[in-house]
Design a binder for these strands. Sequence first.
DNA 1: GCTCAGAGTGAATAAGTATGCACAGTTGCT
DNA 2: AGCAACTGTGCATACTTATTCACTCTGAGC
Lengths: 150, 150
Amino acid sequence: MKRRRQAAILDLVDRTAPSSQEDLRRRLTALGFSVTQATLSRDLRDLGLVKASADGAYHRPGADSTPPDVAIARLKHAIAEYLIGVDRSLQLVVLKTGMAQAQPLASAMDAARLDGVVGTIGGEDTVLVICRDAAASAAVAARIDRMAKG
Amino acid sequence: MKRRRQAAILDLVDRTAPSSQEDLRRRLTALGFSVTQATLSRDLRDLGLVKASADGAYHRPGADSTPPDVAIARLKHAIAEYLIGVDRSLQLVVLKTGMAQAQPLASAMDAARLDGVVGTIGGEDTVLVICRDAAASAAVAARIDRMAKG
DNA sequence: GCTCAGAGTGAATAAGTATGCACAGTTGCT
DNA sequence: AGCAACTGTGCATACTTATTCACTCTGAGC
């Protein structure tokens, strides 16, 4: 039973992002899995799920369901926090940060999915942003500059 | 005040994975930020942090807490599934995949944090793996080859 | 200066989550 | 069969988190 119930939980989490264990419990009951909140608490732990403070809902870890505007807001925050300088060359943009801060900034860049960005790599104190072409990298660099001000 | 406090929160979360808002509150107080749990609840939401059911602790979303062995196993799976060919040049390793499969393979590479790998970018059908140097890229390419067989 | 609107906060409390304990069902051993 | 060990669960309750309401502070516009 447990096995199938947990599969159903994953499915529900992916599709409905339940906002509480009670919410989840009701949905499960509707599917014929009737359990108590206590059991769900244990199931969620077993499944390694995560509760996002932003929306109070359960999600799979890593599944980046962050709505674009939130991702952008977070990127602004990361830029304000970590960015020291911006440079670019051809289709590349290079972001300098303090030591050990490149990784979080790179994650924020990734999540924000800026237009024209192909991918991002975080080193120790440098983030390399690969863009589609030189025009895109110019646009991205400009946009980051603006975020650094705003 | 809020700005700096939230920076301190991110720092504490990265370094200590606080197990509750009370825990976090005590640590912040020690740093001279004295606030109530109510404020922390709001800060955590602003920062988009996540509470993992697995350990009951706060983390950044996406911060891959997957234990290394699991990540490696997952990478093997992704390689078996997606990888078509491996090539390398200087400090770069290039992985070819079918169309639209580069991204998941790149994620798996990232999560696995192989030795000598600086970062990974997934395009459409190509994953670019940047290594520390040529020796590292040779080692990484060899390792991936072995995984493709095993 | 006065007033208003908005941001930030705390105190109290409502809402949500984790867990100690007890117990039932299984499995594997003798 | 008898028994111990283990797993899964519910109930009650302790613990943790979110929210409501009231208050203060700050800056903009008169």
